[in-house]
Design a protein around this nucleic acid. Structure first.
Lengths: 224, 224
DNA sequence: CCGTATCCAATAAGATACTG
DNA sequence: CAGTATCTTATTGGATACGG
């Protein structure tokens, strides 16, 4: 049949479609390729440059990153923006709709953290660390708490604002914070999720608040 | 260095790891391969046989399905079960932890349905259809409503129980239902999400309830 | 420095045939 | 029916070279 041939050619153009109206199947056509969700994760708290993305996605090659960004742009998840002078650099930012996928993929991460195969000693980007705070915040333990906590990881700063049982994250230099943590993402993970206390990280500001803050993010129980 | 060689070999054993402690990266190592999440979706409402899975995942080949099931089993998301006599057939069922990923991937589907590239005219499995009901149920529109609605798609039956703003799904023959819909998943999608009314599907039982029921699942607005 | 383009080797996916 | 074996094709990763 001629029509079958045409259908087959169509499929070849769109490289490997799932012929499935299910939203999940479409999600996988949008962000199902290797690295795609991780690229989106890195854009969760604001625009990033190509070299930052490459540096924070250990193992991705430049050509694959380039291809993923182009695909995400074509699918309206990412925008390519040239910052105004004097910066004049090009950055990639998630669209509003792209950002709506972030809480969902974060939930996927919380689910996966229960796997016995999960290795928390691997390196972690600062974005992953901040996302883990948002994802693992215990509503019970943080009930009634208001605080503004800063983080400094290398030359990247974040501010986490705890209010009404929610944790809002901004990527900016820590200012006007009740307490501030400094260290590598891995050291901060050890202190907060690993329950190792505050020996390995630098804390400034309200030490009592810092001590309480690190207890607000219990790891989900392992399966088994 | 000797240690570097060993690390490289380790990586080769685990085929293509993301060296990333982020939960999301681990999630993608668990269910990030092509077809894996769709296989898990098909197990959402109970165990299935190999041939059913192959039939409901259009385009998957037997070797890939076989490999995915083996991987999901090795990762504790899926169990291989031999039904007791007289059935004596082998089925695959999601583990409890595997089932916990289902609401998350369903949310991913709801997010993706807002894409302008989404094509709702493609075929859809009965599992996808039932999952779309759970995912798209409007809490406002269903407030205070209690109902038991049956679905019959080919030889597969489901019962959806609406109670307290939640929709529980069981895969069993429709019995004791206030109303029952019969048709193909695509016809039912057209009636419920497409807003085409009830012309294309067969309805038995409380017609007034059926008319109200089909309004409870508004599609999320397209982006653009 | 910011990417894009090209080439190559390794792997994963797809198609098809085949066996208990 | 329930897969396995085999072959072909597509995608990925790594290295490197190249233009803005």
């Amino acid at each position: 049949m001629q029509s079958e041939k045409i259908t087959k050619l169509r499929k070849k153009e769109r490289k490997r479609p799932y012929d499935d109206a299910c939203g999940l199947a479409h999600a996988l056509e949008l962000v199902g390729e290797r690295w795609a969700m991780l690229v989106l994760r890195e854009l969760a708290y604001g625009p990033r440059r190509f070299s930052e993305l490459k540096a924070d996605l250990p193992g991705i090659s430049a050509n694959v990153l380039s291809q993923r960004l182009a695909e995400l742009e074509a699918r309206s998840l990412v925008r390519r923006v040239r910052l105004p002078p004097p910066a004049s650099v090009q950055v990639y930012e998630a669209t509003e709709w792209g950002l709506e996928a972030v809480p969902v993929i974060a939930s996927l991460g919380r689910w996966a953290a229960r796997s016995p195969l999960h290795d928390p000693t691997l390196p972690m980007s600062h974005v992953s660390f901040m996302m883990s705070l948002q994802t693992l915040l215990s509503p019970e333990r943080s009930r009634g708490m208001d605080a503004r906590v800063g983080f400094k990881m290398g030359d990247i700063g974040y501010v986490a604002t705890l209010c009404g049982g929610r944790l809002a994250i901004e990527r900016r230099e820590p200012e006007d914070c009740d307490a501030t943590f400094a260290g590598t993402p891995m050291q901060l993970v050890a202190a907060i999720h690993g329950g190792l206390g505050l020996e390995t990280v630098k804390v400034t500001g309200d030490m009592e608040l810092a001590k309480r803050f690190v207890t607000l993010f219990p790891l989900p129980p392992k399966i088994g």
